[in-house]
Amino acid sequence: MTIGDIKNYLDAKVLTGDELLDKEVHTACGCDMMSDVLAFVKDQAVLLTGLCNPQVVRTAEMMDIVCICFVRGKIPSDDIISLAKDRNIAVLATGMKMFPACGILYENGLAGGASSE
């Protein structure tokens, strides 16, 4: 699945990263606790979150997450978007709630990114 596919499935807006829409995403993680993201996420992931602060981008950066999708209609501030842009991370925003957003991506073949390794 590509970031562009995610945008379409979730009817999301692209806040930054139009040039990254062809990038492949292998796994997904839906989470508001960043320490859990740091514990479990695998490569080439999309992070779905309702948390809206710069640490979401920092966490994504540490984990090489390629795309952040803010759910529940949250729109991050410009400094958050520009931090993600600098780090080549696509940012999407959807009005969908976390559960249906995750469900739609799962149904369309995106695996969960949890790993206990």
Binding site: M33, M34, A39, L51
Partner: peptide, 15 residues
């Protein structure tokens, strides 16, 4: 509420 304090920090560092 900022996304931390889940009690995973030190255990992540050890892991």
């Amino acid at each position: 509420s900022l996304g931390f304090g889940a009690g995973m920090g030190l255990s992540n560092m050890k892991k």
